[in-house]
Design a binder for these strands. Sequence first.
DNA 1: ATGGCTACGATCCGTAGA
Length: 257
Amino acid sequence: MRLVTWNVNSLRVRQERIEGWLAEAEPDVVCMQETKLADDAWPALSFKALGYESAHYGQGQWNGVAILSRRSLGDVVEGIPGFADEQKRVIAATVHGMRVVCVYCPNGQAVGSDKYEYKLRWFAALRDYLSAELQNHPRLAVAGDFNVAPEDRDVHDPKAWEGQVHVSVPERAAWRALLALGLKDSFRLFEQPEKVYSWWDYRMMGFRRNAGLRIDHVLLSEELAQTCTSSTVDKAPRKLERPSDHAPALAELRTGA
DNA sequence: ATGGCTACGATCCGTAGA
């Protein structure tokens, strides 16, 4: 079974190409971020026609997250329970015999800014939420745009990025606090080529130069990690016309459910 | 050179992303 996370950077702009990729890649579960849609604009019927049940939690203009599943999708929870947040960044559901939490973590803008403080507060709330989820769901996947490059090898130019937002020490500590719950970065379960990224700046020919960051991740609980057979990034849709600046990250799980 | 691109919703520029 194939689990995918993809920050689409406006579904409206890319609906057709996203549907084309879904038809080709045939993921079983899709976590989507930055739909930039209100819930009443979510094209549930288009995805239904492709064979997906879906749940969307959005606000229009900014943010917006969704989970699509080829099998029935239930127990949908929106946001981080107990964490008041106007920004629609989290949705969870039970699909294919596992609990899936789809996250669009805050960008943080600049170290020391209000948005950066919000990002760290938000990560603390996410940690507490996932801690509780792990108690209830040993089969837990957390997939999304984390806006954190965990290590220097996830950064095309670590010197240029040193201390910047996405790689700063407190952000990486917030990331490691998620791993400390018992979650595994599926990508690092395997030998990987160097310089694999999931996001490239639109400017300065970032993609052509492979000047990117690996910030889109699939985290797996211990039990799910044992079933994981691969974790990759598909750069193909980033090469198309008017692409999202993010590429989809995929994890393969050996699970019958 | 501190920009550079893209999307959004407002208009013909500002905000935000990463």
